[in-house]
Design a protein around this nucleic acid. Structure first.
Length: 961
RNA sequence: GCGGCGGUGGCGCAGUGGCGACGCAGCAGACUUAGGAUCUGUGGCCCUUGAUCGGGCUUGAGGGUUCGAAUCCCUUCCGCCGCACCA
């Protein structure tokens, strides 16, 4: 595979070639494995092998869990793994006990779909994929502690996933204490009367089913009938997060419908505030924090009750529609109301006939309100979210025939239904203030509804709304036109007006200040085979029972058919059927759960793909513990809170930005529950998060827009040709389907793993996406060749270093490099670290003399985290018998890292006219005198009068004339 | 539409107020039968010169602050990423 011919080989039999690299790399990988070089020491338990190591400061470094895909890796995949490995190796050399390993997130749809197509058990194909991927990763020389690796599909692992599920199931959120507590403590409160039951009956008088139902309303994991995203094409329900903005499944791109189904949910909303506020202490990219904040979507406002006349014509305080608004200050401007089409009160308020004088555009041309509402509801339900989306600008809706009363002005306001109000947000009903809300404005214009200006525009448009082109929505203005019984907001600013009206509302019991969240509870069940079974059974009354710990794990049974029943993707009128439900032998089970052997029916849903990755960081710590999820002493050692990381957590977590909300939010939620229940000492799972960029690749397409093999495209004078046909070039993702994938195996074969590692790290900053440039890889290969040649004679293979003392210039170059490289490594700036190593090596190459041993050794140590195989080989050639994994990383001598002379630039009017070599500590006056006396300066000045001299010792003198 | 990030040689990118790092490509040379191997040198554009020297212009565009701007401020254009009728 190497480009080097036999001729060159004979000339330099010990040149650093791809073959030599392959030989070195395989040998060191074997040695690391047999010596257990990367074993991290626990303070106690079965992995406490080395107390000296455990006594060092710890670093817990993690990559996001890979899914073992059957397609194999391309060079983009290991980018993050290489980066964490470099960082981990650097940390080992700076005296840390480093925990770095990698497991597999191995439950998932691809294996199941493959099983459906081929009949291969998902476990079989998944395990084969893991073997392939392990081999590919091993070839890169990643320093993982293999003892700590596992896959989520291991029963020993998912036993604890199920255990955590039960912990969550058996907990409730105590709002007063602001934490989760065991459900038994809630039962005790109901039992002794401290807490009243919903209907006031004593707890003991409730049937088991009723008690179960009550508790279900509090449990952090609960089964409930709720509107969920049903995807007939996949045959499963999906979490909101798995549905794209245009209402399709993220996987498969099938239509998704709203259906009311009984599903398992996680009460993540109980943690909304903590998930939000605890972000502050985390060292995460702002963009990710922002996405989480937006996803949680906290907004402060008020709930306000609007009395409505019911269908029988009675105005009644009982029939009130509650709205959520963030602009309670504009309540006087509410001239109509809108309910979501699905709102439960709609039917109750629709009268038999249109009220006298109903505006024709409000009725949609229907004879009665009931007809109009039914027609609109039907139309809204049949529309996919895509269609709603497309029509977002055109406001549609219909009058219900009912009127409500604006509680502050007393004015009657018509009640509409319209699909611009969403059932899932707030209360599913709004008060519409067309003058001060853009959506309401558009609706009011379309339906010729009145407007009332209650916030004085500051842009000079005046208060006559008939002349307006849009709503005036600014917060920075004063309230007008807002005086009523016992209240006047006139003259107040928006903020004060909000406070005043909120107080007035709560005094009267018709509203209150409240906080609303966009975040909803997490849909946790899937109609899939290849996932963790729920540790739940149902008795003959349908009451769910948690299985005791002793019955875990509930293992996945064998089935004949892995597929859920799927349907016509467009048929909304279908409902899910799980693969596990077809296995009667498994679903029906006789158990003794404390009251004698009885027959139970197993839960046949499985957990979603995220379950296994919600807590894996904890299992890396103590992977073999059969008694506990993780030993508290071990957890506190690796993840406990300490200075600089008050919430504790992993020291560095590297992965793609695509997990910004899903995985990271779920994992934080589980972590907090486990913390509340006292199982762990850290409040957050991941202290520092880093998003690596993507490696992109050029996609070449022919005239039919079909991708052609990128490797076979030729460039001729700025144009691209394939098989004699001109093709176009665009930057895109790397992948098999685009025919532009480059595999790590190819690069390793052509140059070696160290070159691949170096190139991936040198391409640019880790967090930036950049194109893979096949031609540029050779640059890093050359660097390694030069490093090799600076230490080893290519003809004899003998070490060439001298025992001479390094000259001062070399020493300074070395210490400057050390200084820069250590700083860069600590901050994950591997690209600039490599540039500085290259600079040093170029200096040594140009010196054209044997490299002094002291300098060679430091150079080898500097490059060791980046290119560990060649570094180990050189280190051993230099006479060291032990691996350099735990050798001390070079430390810069500050006196040598700084130049004895710095170049001072002398500018005249900002243009450089002369350069002086001066000591760094030169006094300003002396520097100025030196500059003014310089012949070049004198010449450039030509006797002109000097107006001013700016001296910035020691680097600059600027003369102004 | 709202929010975030970013635009520097042919390319990937260094550089957070004061000499454009490092690599690729290119060009010239060396070793070579040859080289897409390796080594050495060169290194944006324009003017001037036989060649040096010298001078001018360059960090998306335009303006501003400053003795001095890739860096700070304003305006504008382009690209990428989130969110998207969230009341």
């Amino acid at each position: 595979m190497s480009d080097t011919t036999p001729a060159a080989e004979t000339a330099a039999p010990h040149r650093y070639t791809a073959q030599l690299a392959a030989d070195i790399e395989r040998r060191w990988q074997d040695r690391w494995e047999t010596e257990g070089t990367f074993a991290a020491a626990n303070p106690s338990g079965d992995l406490d092998s080395d107390p000296e190591l455990a006594a060092r400061p710890k670093k817990f470094i993690m990559d996001m869990f890979p899914y073992p895909s059957g397609a194999g890796l391309h060079v983009g995949h290991p980018l993050g793994y290489i980066a964490t490995d470099v960082y981990a190796r650097f940390q080992r050399m700076t005296g840390h006990n480093v925990l770095h390993t990698l497991g597999f997130d191995a439950f998932g749809l691809p294996a199941e779909q493959y099983a459906v197509q081929t009949g291969t058990h998902p476990r079989v194909s998944t395990e084969a994929n893991m073997v392939t991927m392990q081999a590919q990763l091993r070839r890169l020389g990643l320093g993982h502690d293999r003892r700590r690796s596992f896959a989520t599909i291991d029963p020993d692992y998912y036993r604890w996933t199920q255990w955590i599920f039960l912990q969550i199931y058996n907990s409730w959120y105590d709002k007063a204490a602001d934490r989760a507590r065991p459900i038994a403590e809630l039962v005790a409160q109901f039992a002794d009367g401290t807490r009243e039951t919903p209907d006031g009956r004593p707890w003991a008088e409730l049937t088991a089913a009723e008690q179960s139902e009550v508790l279900s309303g509090h449990r952090l994991a609960y089964a409930a009938q709720s509107p969920v995203n049903w995807c007939p094409g996949l045959g499963t329900v999906l979490a909101n997060e798995e549905v794209t903005a245009d209402g399709r499944s993220e996987r498969g791109n099938y239509p998704v419908f709203k259906a009311n189904l009984r599903q398992w949910m996680m009460r993540i909303t109980a943690y909304a505030d903590r998930l939000l506020s605890d972000l502050d202490a985390l060292d995460w990219p702002e963009a990710i924090k922002l996405q989480q904040r937006n996803w949680i979507g906290r907004s402060e406002g008020a709930r306000v009750d609007f009395p409505v006349r019911t269908a029988d014509g009675q105005a009644s305080a009982d029939a009130a529609v509650t709205v959520f608004t963030t602009r309670q200050d504009t309540l006087f401007g509410a001239t109509y109301m809108v309910l979501a089409p699905e709102h439960e009160l709609v039917e109750a308020i629709v009268p038999a006939a249109w009220p006298e004088g109903t505006h024709p555009v409000w009725t949609g041309g229907h004879a009665t309100p009931a007809d109009a509402v039914a027609a609109y509801r039907k139309q809204a339900a049949s529309k996919s979210d895509v269609e709603r989306q497309a029509e977002a600008k055109d406001k549609t809706g219909v009058f219900t025939g009912a009127f409500a009363v604006n509680p502050v002005s007393g004015d009657p306001v018509p009640v509409f239904i319209a699909d611009y109000v969403l059932m899932g947000y707030g209360t599913g009903a709004i008060m519409a203030v067309p003058a001060h809300d853009t959506r309401d404005f558009a609706f009011a214009r379309a339906f010729e509804l009145p407007m009332r200006c209650v916030v004085e525009p500051t842009d000079g448009r005046g208060t006559d709304t008939t002349t307006w082109d849009d709503a005036f929505a600014s917060y920075d203005a004063t309230i007008v036109n807002s005086a009523g019984e016992g209240i006047s907001l006139d003259g107040l600013g928006v903020v004060e007006a909000k406070a005043a009206i909120t107080r007035w509302l709560s005094e009267r019991g018709i509203g209150e200040g409240t906080v609303n969240y966009r975040l909803r509870d997490w849909l946790f069940s899937r109609q899939r085979y290849w996932g963790e079974p729920f540790p739940i059974v149902y008795d003959e009354d349908g009451v769910p029972h948690a299985l005791p710990d002793s019955m875990l794990p509930v293992e996945l049974p064998e089935v004949d058919d892995y597929s859920p029943r799927t349907f016509d993707p467009d048929d909304a009128d279908t409902s899910p059927e799980t693969p596990l439900s077809r296995n009667a032998e498994w679903t029906t089970v006789e158990l003794d759960l404390g009251d004698g052997p009885r027959t139970y029916r197993r839960e046949t849903n499985t957990m979603p793909n995220w379950a296994g990755s919600c807590w894996y960081e904890l299992r890396y710590l103590d992977p073999n513990n059969s008694e506990r999820l993780v030993d508290p002493a071990v957890e506190s050692y690796w993840m406990g809170p300490r200075d600089g990381r008050p919430a504790g957590g992993v020291d560095l977590y590297v992965g793609g930005a695509e997990h910004a909300v899903l995985h990271l939010l779920y994992a934080r939620f589980w972590h907090k529950v486990l913390f509340d229940l006292g199982h762990i000492s850290s409040v957050e799972p991941f202290h520092k998060l880093y998003n690596q960029g993507m490696i992109q690749a050029y996609v070449y397409r022919d005239a039919r827009r079909i991708a052609v093999p990128a490797a076979e495209v030729e460039e001729l004078g700025g144009e691209y040709w394939y098989n004699g046909e001109r093709v176009t070039r665009l930057l895109g993702k790397m992948g098999k389907s685009l025919k532009n994938a480059v595999t790590p195996d190819e690069i390793c074969a052509e140059f070696g793993a160290d070159t691949l590692r170096l190139y991936e790290m040198a391409m640019g900053p880790l967090d930036v996406s950049r194109p893979w440039e096949p031609r540029a890889v050779v640059g890093q290969y050359r660097l390694l060749q030069r490093v090799w040649r600076n230490v080893v004679d290519e003809a004899t293979g003998e070490v060439t270093v001298s025992d001479a003392e390094p000259d001062e210039e070399t020493l300074r170059a070395l210490h400057k490099a050390i200084d820069g490289v250590s700083g860069d490594m600590a901050e994950l700036r591997f690209n600039t670290a490599i540039a500085k190593i290259t600079e040093l090596n170029n200096h040594l190459t140009k010196a054209a003399a044997p490299v002094p041993r002291a300098v060679a050794e430091q150079l080898v140590l500097l490059i060791a985290p980046l290119a560990p195989h060649i570094a180990e080989e050189l280190w051993s050639k230099l006479g060291h018998t032990a691996s350099l994994t735990h050798a001390d990383f070079p430390v810069a001598d500050p006196a040598l890292a700084q130049d004895p002379e710095v170049t001072c630039v002398v500018q005249i009017k900002g243009k450089v006219k002369a350069r002086l070599e001066v000591p760094p500590a030169i006094p300003e006056a002396e520097l100025e005198a030196l500059a003014l006396a310089d012949p070049a300066v004198v010449a450039a000045l030509g006797g002109a009068a000097i107006r001013k001299v700016i001296v910035r010792a020691p680097k600059l003198v600027n003369i102004v004339i």
